[in-house]
Design a binder for these strands. Sequence first.
DNA 1: TTCTATTTTGAATACGTATGCAAGAAAAAG
DNA 2: CTTTTTCTTGCATACGTATTCAAAATAGAA
Lengths: 328, 328
Amino acid sequence: MKSTVNAKDVAKLAGVSQSSVSRVFFDGAKVTEKTRQKVLAAAEELGYRPNEYARSLITNSSKIIGLVMKGVQNPFYPQVLKQFTTSFKKHGYSVLFVHTNNDEIQSEDIETLLNYNVAGVIITDASMSMNVAEAFQVNHIPLVFFNRKLTSSHFHSVCCNNLNASREIAEYLAESGTGPMVYISGNEDTSTSREREQGFAEVLAQRGIAYKKYSSDFSYNGGYETAQKILSDGAVPSAVFAANDIMALGVMDAFRKQGIKIPEQVKVIGFDNIEMASWPAYELTTWEQPIEKMVDETVNYLLGEISEYTGQAQAVEVEGSFVERKTT
Amino acid sequence: MKSTVNAKDVAKLAGVSQSSVSRVFFDGAKVTEKTRQKVLAAAEELGYRPNEYARSLITNSSKIIGLVMKGVQNPFYPQVLKQFTTSFKKHGYSVLFVHTNNDEIQSEDIETLLNYNVAGVIITDASMSMNVAEAFQVNHIPLVFFNRKLTSSHFHSVCCNNLNASREIAEYLAESGTGPMVYISGNEDTSTSREREQGFAEVLAQRGIAYKKYSSDFSYNGGYETAQKILSDGAVPSAVFAANDIMALGVMDAFRKQGIKIPEQVKVIGFDNIEMASWPAYELTTWEQPIEKMVDETVNYLLGEISEYTGQAQAVEVEGSFVERKTT
DNA sequence: TTCTATTTTGAATACGTATGCAAGAAAAAG
DNA sequence: CTTTTTCTTGCATACGTATTCAAAATAGAA
C-alpha cells in the first residue's frame, strides 16, 4: 500500500487537468499564479510528490550522478564524497555511490550506471578501460576523472597541478639539503603518481641531487613497509617525498619505531593535506589539494554538459598550496 | 541520441513478442530455453539493457537503498559505507548516498528518498524526528538505524552490544587500578554514547571506583580539547575511556604533548577499532565493532522486509570483542 | 465594443516495462 | 489417434509523468 497519490488525484482535487499539475512541478513551464496556488494547495493536502521514475522515463534523463570510488581507506576520498554530495544536492541531483574493489572498474558497475541512465559520472581513484569509457561517450553521458587522468586524453579530468606541486616540493627540499632523497610512488599506473614523480625528478636533476624511487600503493601499510625497506637498503635518505599523506604517515611511524628523528635525520613530505596530517602526532608538511575548488570545477563541467552536451574534454588543473609543518 | 534500444526492438530481431523479452530479463518468469537464447542473442547484438525507470514505474518499487550518513570524518563510517555497497551490490541493489550536515536529518533529504521510492533506508550516525520516521512506515519502506537507536523503539536498529562492551572495559580497567577514571562521551543525545557510559558506570559503581564524565563530540579535536580540560582540572586520572577511537586518538596526542606517559600514567581505551587504532603511533586498546556482522544483520533484515513487509522492529545487538594493545 | 494577438489550459499521446488473460503449443494420459 | 492437462506465448493494458496541438481564455489594440 505505497502512498500512490498521483498528479491526476491532485488535478481532481484542484479542479484542473493533470497537465496543469505537471506544469506546476516542472521547472520552466508556464502556469497562472492562480492555478499554481490551487495545485500547490491540493498537493500539500494530499501529500503529493512527483514520481521520479515516471519523470525519468518520459524525459529520458535522470537527476542522478554516478560516483565511483575505490579507496575509502584514504581519508581524502570520504572528504571528496562529502563535498560532491552536498554540492550536487544544491543543484537538485542525488548521488549513486558505486564502490569498486579492483583498480579497474568492473563492467558490472558500468551496467548499473547505464541502467539508471545517470546524468553524469565521476570516477575517483579507480581507472577504466578505454572501450568502457567510450560507452558513456556513445550515450552522451558526461564523464569526469577526478584526481586521475587517462593516458589517452579524450576524457575530461580534474586534478591538482601535480607537476607544479612536486617541483615546488623538490625545490623546497633542495634548499635545505643535497643528500640523496627518496620518492615513494603509489600504484604505478596512476597519473598522479607519475606526475608527482616527474616534477620532483626534474628539479632534482637540475640541482644535481640524486633520488631513489620506491614503489608502493597509496596505503598506510604500504608506506610503513616501504620505510622499512629503505632502512634495510642502507643509509637514511635526507628526505622522503611520499605520493600521498597516508603513506607519509606510515613512513613516519616506521622511522620513529627505529628511533630515527624527523626532521633532524630525515625530512618527510606528503601530498593531499588530509585532516590527520595536522594532528600533533604527525604535523606533516604536505601539499594541500584544494578539494573544494576541484569539486566545484567538476560539478560545473558536469552541469554544463548535462544541460547541453558538447563532448569536449579537457585536463583541468587546479593549483594547490604548500603547507609547512614540522616534518621538514 | 541516447542509446534507446528497447524491449520491442529486441523482440523484433528475435522474432518474439515484447512480453517474452520482458520475461527473459525478469527473474522468476517462465520462458522456454529456446526463446531465452534467441532473446539473449538479440539483446547482446543490440546492446539492450532493461530501463530501470520503466521497471520501477510499473512495479512500483526500486532497487535502490538510501544510505544516510553524517560523520564521514570518522573513519569508521567510510568503512561501513564500503561494506554496505558491496553487500547490496551482490543482491542487485544500488546505494543512493545522502549526506546530512545536521544531527537531525533534513526533511529535504527525506523527500529525495521518497521521490526515488527507495526499497529501504539505512540511517547511520544521524538522528531523525519521530514523525519523519513515520513517513517511511506509512509508505512501508523498511528503515534501520545503524549504530544508533531511537529512544522510542518502534524502529529497527542494529548496534553493537554497547552495554556488555563497556562493562567488560570497566572490569578490565578495574583489575589493574582503582584510581578515579574518566569517561568521554560523544554527542550526548546519541544512544551509543549513553549506553557506553551506562555499562561503564554500572561496573565502576559496584567496585566503588569514581569516574568523571566529560562531554565531547566524537571528533579528534573534541578528544584533544577534552584531554586538555582534564589536565587543567587537576590530577591525571588512572584511565580514560573514550566513546570512540578517534576521540581516544585525540586524547593520546594531547596527553603526550604534555609529556604524560601512556599507559604508565594514564590508560586510554577507545571504541570501534578503526584502522588507525592499530597504527604504531597509537596502538590503541579498544573494542572492536563487528562491522561485517552488523552490516549482514542490517542487509538481511532489509531484504526480508523488502520481499515481504511486516513492519516488525527490533533492537538487534551484535557482540563485539576486546582488542588489547599498548595503551593499557 | 469588436477584433486580433497572446497566453493558458485540457485532451490525447508517448515513454519502456510487467502482467492478467486468452489463445496456442506442447506434453501427458487414455 | 483423441482428449485432457500443463506450459508457453502474444495481445492489450497500466504505471505516472511530460509534452504537442488545438481549443479556450485572456489581454491588447482599435
